[in-house]
Simulated assay, not measured.
Amino acid sequence: MLDLEPIAALCKTEGLALVVDSTFATPVNFRPLEHGADVVIHSATKYLNGHSDVIAGAVVGSEAVIEEVKKLMRIWGQAIDPMAAWLVERGMKTLVVRVERHNQTALAVAQWCSQQPQFAAVHFPGLPGHKDHEVAKRILNGFGGMLGVELKGGTRASERFLRALTIAAHAPSLGGVETLVSEPRLTSHAMLSPEERAQAGIPDGFLRFSIGLEDADDLIADFAQALAQL
């Protein structure tokens, strides 16, 4: 979790543009332009759409920036089709209520996980013990729906835990109405060695959850029964 304002000040001093990917936060929880960013990008596939049924992206910035983006899109042919645009527009209508639910449920699940001895670490900025909690509390309107956990026992424990879950779907995406869980060692960080992943803060046994709109008590009960099978 980074405080953008000092970074934005440095970028302006050095004549650099500050581009921020705010997909995880969404405009509901954080608006980088208000903190000095020049350009904001979103994977609209994720929270903006919210239903895991479209591939799209969004760029936000000044009129001059957007005009340049539009020119490049015409040259490269990257405009989305009308149906995809409609799906994103449909999802945006419920963005606020969905993100508020993601915030609430993820916080409840993270708090519960932080009390379970089977987890070596729980990564969620809404927890007071998180190293960036104070920054997150100051700049975010909500802590989001992304949750990382490290299971004691490494890969073997994480595989058994995944097989035992009944609600969360094992899939690499995020930001939809359903809870998804992925293993970075097999997806986003598969090209790294175990040692390199550990140095990046992603040891074996690390799982990334995108907490959905299910009832928090149901998710916690599912986590509990899965932990009981380790």
Score class of each variant (00 low, 15 high):
47 Y>E: 06
132 D>S: 12
78 Q>W: 15
215 D>V: 13
33 L>A: 10
19 V>N: 11
33 L>D: 05
185 R>L: 02
106 A>G: 08
80 I>D: 10
24 F>Q: 13
230 L>R: 15
180 L>K: 14
84 A>K: 09
33 L>V: 08
190 A>G: 06
193 S>F: 14
23 T>S: 14
106 A>R: 02
170 H>Y: 14
102 H>E: 07
2 L>H: 12
175 G>W: 01
151 L>N: 01
130 H>E: 09
40 V>F: 09
147 L>Y: 00
50 G>S: 07
204 D>E: 14
190 A>Y: 11
142 G>R: 02
179 T>H: 12
8 A>Q: 12
19 V>F: 08
226 A>K: 04
178 E>I: 14
172 P>E: 04
200 A>W: 12
171 A>T: 10
154 G>Q: 04
70 K>G: 05
91 G>Q: 03
36 G>C: 13
123 H>S: 12
65 V>D: 03
122 V>E: 00
133 H>W: 12
94 T>C: 05
109 V>F: 01
192 L>G: 00
229 Q>S: 15
97 V>F: 12
162 L>F: 05
173 S>C: 03
126 G>I: 06
171 A>C: 07
140 L>V: 08
2 L>K: 06
76 W>R: 09
25 A>T: 09
143 F>Y: 15
112 W>P: 00
83 M>T: 10
14 E>P: 01
157 A>V: 04
178 E>V: 13
8 A>V: 13
48 L>A: 06
87 L>H: 02
74 R>Y: 05
50 G>A: 10
178 E>C: 11
39 V>I: 15
30 F>I: 03
226 A>Y: 03
128 P>F: 09
205 G>E: 02
191 M>L: 07
96 V>L: 13
121 A>L: 10
193 S>V: 12
36 G>H: 10
211 I>F: 05
28 V>M: 06
24 F>D: 04
226 A>T: 10
132 D>T: 12
4 L>W: 01
230 L>N: 15
144 G>Q: 03
116 Q>T: 04
5 E>G: 03
204 D>T: 03
78 Q>V: 11
214 E>D: 14
104 Q>S: 13
97 V>S: 15
21 D>H: 07
225 Q>I: 06
51 H>N: 13
104 Q>G: 02
64 A>M: 12
131 K>A: 09
117 P>R: 04
80 I>M: 14
56 A>N: 06
36 G>K: 08
221 A>N: 13
7 I>W: 11
163 R>E: 15
32 P>D: 04
92 M>W: 05
100 E>M: 04
7 I>C: 14
91 G>T: 04
29 N>L: 06
63 E>K: 14
222 D>T: 11
77 G>A: 07
117 P>F: 02
62 S>A: 14
206 F>E: 00
36 G>F: 09
156 R>H: 08
217 D>H: 13
81 D>F: 08
46 K>G: 01
147 L>N: 00
157 A>R: 00
105 T>K: 02
88 V>H: 01
138 R>H: 11
201 G>A: 09
114 S>Q: 10
74 R>Q: 13
99 V>D: 01
213 L>V: 15
136 A>K: 02
82 P>M: 08
98 R>L: 05
205 G>C: 06
179 T>G: 09
202 I>C: 01
21 D>E: 12
131 K>N: 06
206 F>A: 01
116 Q>K: 11
162 L>D: 03
163 R>M: 13
65 V>F: 12
183 E>C: 02
220 I>E: 07
40 V>P: 01
190 A>R: 15
43 S>C: 11
196 E>M: 14
17 A>R: 14
